[in-house]
């Protein structure tokens, strides 16, 4: 396969925070439409890795090619990548001074140059998809955590991204809200979106993921399809981690 057939290709990537070698020799190829779940202990570098994919963090060595575009210091290319890659954060990061609808239309209007009416129509479509169109004129502070995270997903989708990154989207939520967010993500997966999800929701991983990746100490230790990964982990550290989170 040529580089263009991959949604994301990470090749021998290293990253340091000062002296701290946080990512070591990361190699990852994600084909279009693939759903990847990333798990691993706290501090293993999961967030750092997916944040390198849309250049919220810089890497020092190796290549990252997203949708055929190589990430370098070139600001234009970074912007191009960011337009195609949506991201959802653990703490939603909605813009508190804008209404839900304005949160969703901001980037389409200002980045894609879309007309306001069109952007609003698209935004309402996605708000319906995440099942909260009735909240459109409220402010983020007036919504529950689960609702906010669904808005955050809708906000990313309004840019019509080809790839979605999720960084622990449910770990700041109460248990009863986790399902509503996972349902939205499951829908998205079934529609063929390319997704990388950092999550510890193993039920979601088993049901939706094409591949599960386990990271520890800045390295990818193990990767496999969900069934063999959960039923028959190879690496000792994976076994230990799974035994801890699956009780």
């Amino acid at each position: 396969m040529s580089d263009n057939d991959f949604a994301i290709k990470i090749n021998k990537m290293h990253k340091w925070y000062g002296d701290f070698h946080v990512l070591r020799d990361i190699n990852l190829e994600v084909t279009k439409g693939e759903i990847i779940v990333v798990c691993g202990p706290s501090g293993s570098g999961k967030s750092t890795m997916i944040r390198c994919i849309n250049r919220l963090e810089e890497h020092q060595q190796g290549d990252i090619i997203v949708d055929g575009i190589e990430l370098t210091n070139d600001v234009k290319k970074i912007d191009e990548v960011r337009r195609e890659v949506g991201m959802c954060f653990q703490h939603f990061n909605l813009f508190p001074h804008l209404t839900i609808l304005e949160n969703c239309t901001l980037a389409p209007i200002w980045v894609r140059g879309m007309a306001k009416a069109e952007a609003e129509e698209i935004a309402m479509g996605f708000l319906e998809k995440v099942k909260i169109p009735e909240q459109a004129s409220k402010f983020p502070g007036q919504l529950s955590g689960g609702q906010q995270q669904r808005v955050a997903i809708a906000r990313s989708l309004c840019m019509k991204p080809r790839i979605m990154l999720f960084d622990e989207p449910t770990s700041a939520l109460d248990p009863e809200m986790i399902k509503e967010v996972l349902d939205v993500m499951t829908d998205l997966a079934s529609e063929g979106m390319t997704m990388i999800c950092v999550t510890h929701e193993m039920g979601f991983a088993k049901q939706v993921a094409d591949r599960v990746i386990f990271m520890d100490a800045g390295q990818i230790i193990e990767e496999n399809k969900p069934e063999p990964f959960f039923d028959n982990p190879q690496n000792e550290r994976t076994k230990l981690f799974l035994s801890q989170i699956l009780h």
């Binding site: 849309n54 919220l56 912007d79 960011r82 337009r83 890659v85 949506g86 991201m87 954060f89 703490h91 990061n93 909605l94 813009f95 508190p96 001074h97 901001l106 980037a107 200002w110 980045v111 906000r155 990313s156 840019m159």
Partner: peptide, 25 residues
């Protein structure tokens, strides 16, 4: 910091993210 990151992740340029997201707040 999350506000800056969300604005970046949406592809807003520095000036647009300042003007539309950061400075109003």
């Amino acid at each position: 910091r999350g506000q800056y990151e969300a604005a970046d992740a949406l592809g807003l340029s520095y000036w647009k993210s300042m003007r539309l997201v950061i400075l109003p707040q």
